[in-house]
Amino acid sequence: MKTVQIDKKKQDREIVSRVERCARKAACDTDRQGALLALLHEVQNEFGYIPRAAMDVVSEKLSLPTAHIYGMATFYNYFSLKPKAKYKVYVCKGTACYVSGGARIIERLKTELGVAEGDLTSDGLFSMHITRCLGCCGLSPVMQVNDEVYVRMVPERVPGILAKYRTLG
């Protein structure tokens, strides 16, 4: 129990110093109210998402209520409150991909990764998302991992593709 607490404190200290770095970038000291949006942008870029502990630090830094910060952080699509995965797997559910079996790819990904749409695997490596038309309907169904596109997908190819990224780590 004790070691966990120490680690937590270390983690908190790290978050504080990272948010403070963000605050310097966002030039918070001049206009604290107006700085909130800019600071949240920096936090999003720094962490890849907005951790709750970071919102606490932002609240302290700008003397703004956490409720207010939470309201703003959830309003804008740009901000995410969940950590983003290293490899974001997108499956197209546009009309063409849908009729040519996109849903089966999604089902296979769900069983392989053990997560629901939009969620992150426990190791933080993958997240699974459904997306609109990716613009290559002739090659449907389409799956994309970060910037790499996989075309004419069949469920059987899913494990192999995931394994490739797992070895990359």
Binding site: K9, D12, V16, D56, V57, E60, S63, P65, T66
Partner: peptide, 11 residues
């Protein structure tokens, strides 16, 4: 807000 709470900084 921890600081406004007048508490020792919780972090």
């Amino acid at each position: 807000v921890p600081k406004r709470a007048g508490a020792a900084n919780i972090f």
